[in-house]
């Protein structure tokens, strides 16, 4: 099957003042595909993710269905945002503290589907809340009244409200227990199958990345150092950083901090 990529990133570069967070990076993402993105803390993963959605200034080209996101008008960008969604890394900090959960989830619907009736809107919100494992009586609560993992799930629910075509997930399961991690990951996969969503999935959890990804990119110090199909990457990592990363994955019952696994 031949299809042109949904997202084509070429020579994307992110600079903060004199500091280069992301050196020219190029990759493609196909419809319905999941691209894992792993790498060192501070290697530029979040910056790259934000640059794709034009949330930080960047140079290069980000083609979305052959339209350059980095060059389109603001009006056009607002329209595109309906299809492009992101789950942010810091769940609490990314939710407006003065909005109740019900309003946080209603907001994207108000903006992009204003014709929806009140009842239909409530129905969609309740359904999503249920799918991320939260109770309906939490709708009137404020973000600070939730646990870390609950905030993360609110972020996930909000990002999925509009069934986006591209979902950028920046550490979407990091503060969840393994069971709810599984629940959210399964939910993302369901959504992907149902709506053919493409995903860029950033995580430090190598087991989850291995589970969900078709291909994996590895970043180190602002560079893309390795790119391979998921099976290849985990079976035969090439770059020394990728090897160190896989060797450092902790295992239950093993003693902590095996120095040999460190760089």
């Amino acid at each position: 099957m031949i299809h042109s990529p949904l997202l084509q990133v070429s020579d994307l570069c992110v600079q903060f003042g004199a500091f280069t967070a992301v050196n020219p990076v190029s990759f493609d993402l196909n419809e319905g595909e999941t691209l894992g993105l792993v790498g060192e803390s501070g290697s530029g993963k979040s910056s790259l993710a934000r640059a794709i959605l034009r949330l930080v200034p960047a140079t290069g080209v980000v083609l979305w269905k052959s339209e350059n996101i980095l060059a389109c008008s603001h009006q056009r960008l607002r329209r595109l945002r309906r299809d492009l969604s992101i789950i942010f890394q810091d769940p609490l900090a990314s939710l407006n503290p003065r909005m109740q959960v019900g309003d946080l989830l209603a907001e994207p619907l108000h903006i992009f589907e204003p014709a929806l009736s009140h009842n239909e809107r409530q129905r969609r919100i309740l359904k999503m809340l249920d799918r991320v494992g939260l109770h309906a009586n939490m709708l009137t609560q404020y973000p600070h009244e939730f646990s870390g993992g609950q905030c993360q799930r609110i972020g996930v629910a909000r990002a999925m409200m509009l069934q986006p075509q591209l979902l950028v997930c920046d550490e979407p399961v990091s503060s969840l227990d393994v069971s709810i991690q599984g629940q959210i990951v399964n939910l993302l996969v369901d959504l992907q199958i149902e709506f053919n969503t493409a995903m860029l999935f950033i995580s430090h959890n190598m087991a989850v990345v291995r589970h969900i990804s078709d291909r994996v990119l590895v970043m180190y110090r602002g560079q893309l150092v390795e790119s391979a199909s998921c099976d290849t990457l985990f079976a035969a990592p090439v770059h020394p950083y990728t090897r160190a990363l896989l060797a450092a994955v902790p295992v239950i019952g093993a003693t902590a901090a095996r120095p040999s696994a460190m760089l």
Binding site: S175, H204, A244, L245, R258
Partner: peptide, 14 residues
Amino acid sequence: TTALDVTVQAQIIK
């Protein structure tokens, strides 16, 4: 250690 890559996780634990 949740927001850290596993190599840095190992350093923080150490």
